[in-house]
């Protein structure tokens, strides 16, 4: 299994700082509906880097990775069902 090293950690850190700069920059561009999409994508990229490297998922077994993904999967169910209900209601953005 791949072992972590200090250089990889430092590169992950630098990448996260660059992404932080990008997210603040994007917020100032006034992109309208694209703004949340880009900002949350950048946050997800940072979160993935931290989970994969700092939280050792890169070294983890398939079982550990599955449990980590399951947390995310349940969150998708929570958001998916609630937002489907919300968006489909009359008076909502789609209705």
């Amino acid at each position: 299994m791949p072992r972590s090293n200090a250089l990889a950690f430092f590169l992950v850190y630098l990448a996260c700082l660059v992404l932080l700069g990008a997210t603040i920059g994007v917020a100032h561009l006034g992109l309208g509906a694209l703004n949340p999409v880009l900002n949350l994508s950048i946050a997800a990229a940072k979160a993935f880097l931290i989970m994969w490297f700092f939280m050792h998922l890169r070294e983890g077994s398939t079982l550990v990775r599955l449990v980590a993904f399951a947390g995310l999967f349940w969150l998708i169910i929570l958001f998916g069902l609630v937002l489907t209900d919300w968006l489909a209601r009359s008076g909502g953005p789609l209705g």
């Binding site: 917020a27 949340p36 940072k46």
Partner: peptide, 17 residues
């Protein structure tokens, strides 16, 4: 790191969007 990741989402959600 998990507490860090929570903030990484709180920051854009509250401040930037």
């Amino acid at each position: 790191h998990f507490v860090d990741v929570v903030w990484l989402f709180l920051y854009p959600t509250l401040y930037l969007i």
